[in-house]
Simulated assay, not measured.
Amino acid sequence: MSSRHTDLDTGPLYALSHLDALESEAVHIFREVAGEFENPVILFSGGKDSILMLRLALKAFAPAPVPFALLHVDTGHNFPEVLAYRDRTVERYGLRLHVASVQDYIDRGVLRERADGTRNPLQTLPLTERIRTERFDAVFGGGRRDEEKARAKERVFSLRDEFSQWDPRRQRPELWNLYNGRHAPGEHVRVFPLSNWTELDVWQYIAREDIDLPAIYYAHEREVFRRDGMWLTAGQWGGPREGETVQQRQVRYRTVGDMSCTGAVDSDATTIEKVITEIAASRLTERGATRADDKLSEAAMEDRKREGYF
């Protein structure tokens, strides 16, 4: 909500709350992309950040429909609750959904399963090929600068070359919220309207707007096993291994990705108010605490960005 006070010389003055200011910035970015690009697309996984992005896009163009399609890179190891949410959302808003399937590439022999079972690092080729074949010139992502050090380097408009690769030396200044979408044929721009949001901002906005989320974001009973300091869900990807014991615990997920690398946290946060309290007290980002794919090396996310994934 905005606040109002009176200046004796100029009359009523209005100040946006921090959530209103973040919303206004994101809406401006969506509209800027609609004006600058011919064929944008929104990356949508059914995770909280992509859900928030879609809500902001709906606001940006209401009462008209969102003028962008959605793109999901499906690892084949997604949480069923999240896929069901994705499909309900597409039907509810009459959206166009493109699905790039990692399993298709494995079946064709183009990609091979990793020894650790995780498919998150295998998403790069399906994503970049779908961008090229559909000729998407702007791709919205839900990355935030507070999540991980490599993401903190991103500009709002992140230029990618004809191979979808990221070169930090080619990124442009964004003074006074001026965004340069110029790109050569074959290049595209990744766009991050949530860059300046924090995890706490996301949850506070979700609470304010009463946004529905997949149930796994709230505390629930689940069968999990311990690996590398995280509670992972057993599934068709191959866990648990010998010696890893499955337990019934009350957990929730702070972030959602491939089941093989997304850990749950012990939690009693069954309501959004409790989640906000829990996040406010945390000193670890959701990716730092619960994403094994970011721990493959010190520069795991940086490497994936250079290859074209994020």
Rank of each mutant, 00 (worst) to 15 (best):
H5T: 12
T10H: 09
Y14V: 06
Y14H: 06
L16Y: 15
L16W: 11
E23G: 09
H28F: 13
A34L: 14
A34I: 15
G35C: 15
E38H: 13
V41M: 04
L52Y: 05
L54W: 07
L56E: 02
A57C: 10
F61Q: 08
A62D: 08
P67Q: 05
A69W: 10
D74Q: 01
T75F: 03
H77Y: 08
N78Y: 08
P80T: 07
R86K: 04
E91S: 02
Y93A: 10
L97K: 06
A100S: 13
V102N: 05
G109E: 03
N120M: 03
L122R: 00
P126C: 13
E129T: 10
R132L: 05
A138P: 15
V139F: 07
V139S: 05
F140C: 06
G142P: 08
R144P: 02
D146N: 03
K153H: 11
R155A: 14
V156H: 12
V156P: 07
F157Q: 06
L159T: 09
F163T: 12
W166R: 07
D167F: 12
N177F: 13
L178I: 14
G181F: 10
P185V: 03
S195T: 12
S195K: 14
N196E: 10
W197A: 11
T198V: 10
W203N: 04
W203I: 07
W203F: 15
A215N: 14
I216G: 03
I216Q: 08
E221D: 06
E221F: 09
R222D: 11
E223I: 06
R226E: 08
W231H: 02
T233K: 06
G235P: 01
E242A: 14
Q248T: 13
Q248S: 11
R252C: 04
M259I: 01
G263V: 01
A264D: 01
D266H: 10
I272N: 08
E273I: 13
V275Q: 13
V275C: 11
E278R: 08
A280E: 09
L284N: 12
E286C: 04
E286Q: 09
R287S: 09
A289Y: 02
T290D: 00
A292D: 00
D293H: 05
L296I: 04
A299W: 10
R306S: 10
F310C: 03
